[in-house]
């Protein structure tokens, strides 16, 4: 096993580059579509917008997920399949109950909050892959949105949005706005605004009022996503606050960034100095 350590280091650099490149590709894709699209549509066609939306977003999401997954320790990794299944189970349940919401990212947000943005990104991206393999490949182009939601949930937790009960819904609302903006080009250029019967009707209404296709899908997204993510983040914060802090405290990310706003953790006691005030009380040795 000679040279295994340098290999790991090389991977670390490579992974950072993947994540940075992926982010760059997504941002560039979005900006290009927003800035270049009106001219092309005016020429009467879609031009290369659809290809760029699909390729840019998929490559970007793939790069971020691939780069991020290598950073994750096994403990985090084994959390992700359960979170993915939670996304799918609750998403289906929501549909069965006939709620006008998606609620298909509870697991993604949960992992982002407990294990950080990288873990959230991987959960989001792979959830869409699993949707594709089990229910059908319609959701796959939206993988980038799921990545964005996982990343933002992670940063929201890092920045203390889960320390107060009322801050989490705000973070959810903001995440919903970003999610709506990012997914609008996919809904517009890949699905022509027809991602479902209800959403299609809303897009048609916005178009009838004189909005462009991209503007209409953006507005449609802004009607549903912020509400959906606000509710999702609220559900997550309610559940996590109800958990014993011992369970929440198991996650190194939670401890490192003080996600739930307890006082700064006590420094680990020095093994050589059992009398130090921070050290836990150790029972006396048996008298024998």
């Amino acid at each position: 096993m000679s040279g295994s350590t340098p290999a790991v280091d090389a991977n670390r650099t490579r992974n950072r580059i993947f994540v940075a490149l992926g982010t760059l590709v997504i941002v560039a894709t979005y900006l290009y579509l927003i800035l270049a699209q009106p001219e092309e549509l005016a020429e009467g066609g879609l031009g290369t917008s659809a290809l760029i939306a699909l390729a840019g977003y998929l490559i970007g999401a793939g790069l971020i997920a691939a780069g991020a997954i290598h950073r994750l320790p096994t403990a985090t990794l084994s959390l992700i399949p359960i979170a993915i299944v939670l996304n799918i189970a609750v998403g289906q349940l929501t549909a069965v109950l006939g709620l006008p919401l998606y609620l298909d990212s509870i697991g993604t947000v949960l992992v982002g909050v407990l294990a950080g943005p990288a873990a959230g990104a991987v959960t989001g991206a792979l959830t869409n892959v699993i949707w594709g393999l089990t229910i059908g490949p319609i959701a796959l182009p939206f993988a980038v949105t799921a990545v964005v939601i996982g990343v933002l949930a992670g940063y929201a937790a890092r920045w203390g949005m889960f320390r107060r009960f009322y801050l989490a819904p705000v973070a959810g609302f903001v995440t919903g706005i970003v999610a709506a903006l990012v997914s609008a080009p996919i809904a517009a250029f890949i699905f022509g605004g027809a991602t479902g019967a209800g959403t299609g009707a809303i897009v048609a209404a916005f178009q009838a009022w004189g909005n462009s296709l991209l503007a209409s899908t953006t507005l449609q997204g802004l009607l549903s996503d912020p509400l959906d993510k606000t509710i999702t983040f609220t559900i997550v914060v309610i559940i996590l606050f109800a958990l014993p802090s011992r369970l929440r405290g198991r996650f190194p990310f939670v401890r490192q960034y003080n996600v739930f706003g307890k006082v700064a953790p006590v420094a680990p006691a020095e093994p050589a100095a059992p009398a130090a005030p921070a050290a836990p009380a150790e029972p006396e040795a048996p008298k024998a």
Partner: peptide
């Protein structure tokens, strides 16, 4: 052997 979990008030194992 002795071990205390992080943030735990007491040692789980001691002088084992």
């Amino acid at each position: 052997v002795a071990f205390a979990y992080e943030d735990a008030p007491a040692f789980t194992l001691a002088h084992l």
